[in-house]
Design a protein around this nucleic acid. Structure first.
Lengths: 143, 143
DNA sequence: GTGCCTACTTCCCGAAAGAAAGCAGGTCTC
DNA sequence: GAGACCTGCTTTCTTTCGGGAAGTAGGCAC
């Protein structure tokens, strides 16, 4: 019985490389994934003016994301969006307008993960000073 | 005045590639960083038996981490640990025992981030089934 | 000496990310 | 109809990064 329990636990252990949840963790522990989720979740800088408001899932166009996520290559953006669509975290909608319009929007599943990525972004912004201070201190000790 | 405010916001905007908080976000959005923080935060599978208990920061040896984080190369483990030490997220302690013992332990700063990475790991484990189902559904539609 | 231990470090190579150009399908202009 | 735009990709090339395996340092045991 203890053996069965241990086996079941091993199968759901995110530290095991072969475990699906570990593969999923590897997928979402990606800078572009985190940034895209932040963007589509409405966690954009302009929204920080109205605290509590406008943190709603916001549909965004490909070009909007490309502009907002400074430094992302078009290849990576497309690749990451397709992967997230495949995993059911967002939906891709093509509207045949004057020039074609493609919008991406978080699903309920994506929104649930967005809450966590938002926390990551918030943590990075609030603890940045501390980290930079630690970095300087450690670099100084190297001599 | 509006210009000053916009500038200040741009400097602290995690979506800008040059912003330090963006670089910090890129650093922590890394699978090995997340897994190391989970491990050192005491968020190991065996601890899930006692809910609420043993989720304390736990010092671990290099070899312990290497064993727990299945699939990590020694190079990446060392590199990631050094980076986290530099950023003040964990401390590295060398004890000159029979064979030398090196232990790593989260700092307060690292522990605060651990709460978020623990959420990520928990999310991955609970929503894995949904994601896998979505993946199969989307792959089937491809034909 | 030789071997073994931990905790790295170094080297090499394949895989993945980035930069830039090209392409598809549509409209508008002339 | 030819050319010039537009968005949203795709392709190609280059560079950088990560994994695998071997080697190293310092200490002890035999």
């Amino acid at each position: 019985m203890a053996t069965t329990k241990a086996q079941a636990k091993a199968e759901y252990n995110a530290f095991m490389a072969v475990c699906p949840s570990r593969q999923l963790l590897d997928r979402i522990s990606n800078k572009w994934v985190v940034l895209i989720l932040c963007a589509l979740g409405g966690d954009v800088p302009d929204a920080s003016d109205q605290p509590g408001a406008s943190h709603a899932p916001k549909a965004m166009r490909y070009s909007e994301l490309s502009r907002l996520l400074a430094g992302v290559s078009q290849k990576m953006l497309t690749q990451t969006l397709r992967a997230l669509e495949r995993d059911g975290l967002l939906t891709r909608t093509v509207t045949p307008t004057v020039p074609v319009t493609v919008t991406y929007q978080l699903t309920g599943l994506g929104l649930s993960l967005h809450h966590l990525t938002r926390g990551l972004r918030h943590w990075a912004q609030t603890h940045m000073d501390q980290v930079l201070a630690n970095r300087e201190k450690n670099d100084a000790q190297a001599f």
